[in-house]
């Protein structure tokens, strides 16, 4: 976030999201947007300005907002529901479970500022558990884009998928990252960089960290494969096992609790064909305020350096 600004290679994902949603709304009259007084942060404000009749300001009432979206969806609309990740998954959990997921309502839940990316607001506004909550709900699709390109793709996919989708959008800038071997879409894990000794599964901003770690490890003679997993659910186990069978060990890293997120999903997939695995994430703790997102990622050990330490320990080197 802080370092050298390479304007062409980075973008603000919520800005990208807002533009992508506007484009989708231009193309598809069924799309409507709802927000709970955060449209300037979630960037649903672009739809609000361009299509005021298809934007519903619901006030600071997330539970009513989510269930109203269900009514819109069950009568033919494609509602994109916006709030901070914490509130759309937490405050409205039961509405999501009962009224969205159970009847497979075509509602898109857009959780902005997930993880520590709302650094200043502290633990109340940060999420450590949003993926764990959403993964436990049947019928849910969870998308956590790793770069601005995937944010655009996620909006297209969310529109195309018939049914509930939870889309996580970070508040922090993201680099555009090239894929070595892309999945068919971001619904499938993508090989970001080849490697033979160890596989690192990552998503969101952590994918860039994993690629950085790979460079460092390479200098130490460790060959790390990096696999990006942007779709946390559904995640068929073959798609994980494909990348774990031929390596000595596995690392997962995510901006989320070590409980219930990507690490858990990988371990569930590899349970019958296990590898020594190190799950890097937030260690069952709440966040706190800081003056930058980077400070929090470093404080909670969500960095390339943490991946390198884990790799050395797993491979008993260094």
């Amino acid at each position: 976030m802080d370092g050298v600004k390479e304007m062409k290679s980075k973008a603000c994902p919520r800005e990208t999201y807002g533009r992508a949603l506007l484009k989708a709304a231009e193309e598809d009259r069924r799309i409507v947007a709802l927000d709970a007084d955060l449209s300037g942060s979630t960037m649903s404000c672009y739809v609000r300005r361009s299509y005021p009749a298809r934007y519903f300001e619901m006030g600071i009432g997330e539970q009513n907002m989510v269930a109203t979206a269900v009514g819109l969806a069950l009568s033919g609309k494609i509602p994109f529901v916006h709030s901070f990740s914490m509130f759309v998954t937490g405050r409205a959990f039961e509405q999501v479970r009962q009224s969205v997921a159970l009847p497979k309502a075509n509602v898109k839940l857009v959780g902005s500022s997930y993880g520590f990316s709302d650094f200043g607001d502290g633990a109340t506004h940060q999420t450590v558990e949003d993926v764990a909550i959403m993964r436990a709900i049947p019928n849910m699709t969870i998308l956590s884009p790793m770069d601005p390109g995937e944010v655009e793709e996620a909006v297209r996919l969310a529109r195309a998928i018939e049914g509930p989708v939870y889309l996580r959008i970070s508040r922090s800038e993201m680099e555009f990252l090239p894929k070595e071997i892309p999945g068919k879409s971001m619904l499938e894990p993508s090989l970001m960089a080849k490697g033979e000794d160890i596989t690192v599964f990552a998503n969101g901003l952590m994918t860039a960290e994993a690629l950085l770690a790979r460079e460092t490890l390479l200098e130490e003679g460790i060959s790390a494969r990096v696999v990006n997993v942007s779709c946390l659910k559904p995640l068929p186990k073959e798609m994980i096992l494909r990348w774990t069978g031929d390596v000595e060990a596995v690392i997962t890293i995510e901006e989320h609790s070590v409980i219930g997120g990507l690490g858990s999903a990988v371990l569930e997939a590899t349970a019958l064909e296990p590898k020594p695995t190190f799950v890097i994430g937030i260690d069952d703790a709440f966040g706190q305020s800081a003056w930058s997102h980077r400070e929090l990622l470093e404080h909670y050990g969500l960095t390339a350096a943490a991946i390198c330490r884990a790799a050395r320990a797993l491979l008993k080197r260094g």
Partner: peptide, 29 residues
């Protein structure tokens, strides 16, 4: 449960949610 029973419009019974769902349908109308 609307998926199971013909003529049922929404999944309700966890109380307090049906009026919001109705509001959404009214807005679509």
């Amino acid at each position: 449960e609307r998926d199971r029973t013909p003529g049922v419009e929404a999944n309700t019974g966890s109380l307090g949610q049906g009026l919001s769902i109705g509001l959404g349908m009214a807005l679509t109308g």
